[in-house]
């Protein structure tokens, strides 16, 4: 049971990095990035490929983040000229491009089979029971660092302008500021952060496959952000935790309802999570941490 709780805590910490990145992009700036998982995948695969070829863990993290940031830049230039709804579709499409590229680049990525045998973080301590605790501590520290950086951004002149962009882009232009520059930077920071989360994920799970980087992940992160309260940095943390509790809690349904067949149960779990989300958004639309987009 302890190991199980620890595993959940580690997943929550990894996905919170993604939620914090989405909160910067959508919550603070209004960018509807539906392609988060693409950047997550770049990080996961960069770490998987490099570390299984004998490069150090740090190289995987750095290469993943750098690649994701570089990938975000042209997306910023091109996609930011699109209207919001097209931007959402374009980013969703791009994340699928990443997945399809991974599937077809068999020599590098092993295609649909994926890459197993990714070394765990702090592998030298593998035998120690506190190894996962150390990983969790590192993740918590990383999250704390990111929260501090996000706070600094949100309360800065930069944060003021991205908030203005979210509220009225034309008016920002009328005042002599280019929304595209700010949005591109936000997209690049979000991409780098998503890649770091992907690297952590790859090392923790130990293998990567294209199935891990479907749009479902993106939408779960959106749910987490909405649950926590869009625009609230602390909400990103709590929302991710709540979503994970909902999803994991639904696992115990079979024990409660032993007479339901296992295929029906799989659907019932999705239904229960969905119902909980709907109820939550109806009765607390502002999310756990309150009002939308107040700093």
């Amino acid at each position: 049971m302890e190991a199980y709780l620890l595993a959940i805590a580690i997943f929550v910490a990894i996905f919170t990095l993604l939620t914090l990145g989405l909160n910067l992009q959508y919550g603070l700036t209004g960018l509807t990035n539906f392609g988060l998982v693409g950047f997550f995948g770049i990080g996961a695969y960069a770490s998987a490929i490099l570390t299984t070829h004998g490069y150090p863990v740090v190289a995987g993290f750095a290469a993943g983040a750098a690649l994701a940031v570089i990938a975000a830049w042209p997306i910023g230039l091109v996609a930011l000229r699109l209207r919001d709804d097209y931007f959402a579709i374009a980013t969703l499409g791009l994340s699928e491009v990443v997945r399809v590229a991974i599937i077809s680049e068999k020599e590098l990525t092993a295609g649909v089979q994926g890459i197993p045998g990714i070394p765990r973080l702090f592998a030298v301590l593998e035998s120690r029971t506190w190894q996962p605790l150390l990983l969790l501590a590192v993740l918590v520290a990383a999250n704390l660092g990111v929260v501090l950086v996000m706070r600094r951004i949100a309360r800065s002149p930069f944060g003021r302008v991205i908030g203005a962009i979210r509220d009225n882009e034309e008016a920002v232009r009328a005042l002599g500021k280019d929304p595209a520059r700010f949005k591109t930077q936000v997209l690049m920071v979000g991409a780098g952060l998503s890649a770091v989360a992907g690297s952590f994920y790859a090392h923790y799970v130990g293998y990567v496959t294209p199935d891990q980087i479907t749009p479902l992940v993106t939408f779960q992160i959106w749910m987490a952000m909405i649950l926590g309260g869009t625009g609230r940095i602390s909400g990103a943390v709590l929302g991710t935790l709540l979503l994970m509790l909902l999803i994991e809690g639904a696992r115990f349904l079979p024990d409660l309802l032993p007479f339901v067949s296992s295929t029906a149960m799989a659907e019932l779990r999705v239904f229960v999570v969905g119902l909980a989300l709907v109820l939550f958004t109806v009765y607390r639309p502002q999310g756990l941490m309150g009002e939308v987009a107040r700093r």
Binding site: R160, G163, R166, N168, A174, V292, R294
Partner: peptide, 10 residues
């Protein structure tokens, strides 16, 4: 602007 474009959440 004739119709104000305030940054409503700021």
């Amino acid at each position: 602007f004739q119709v104000p474009r305030e940054f409503s959440h700021l």
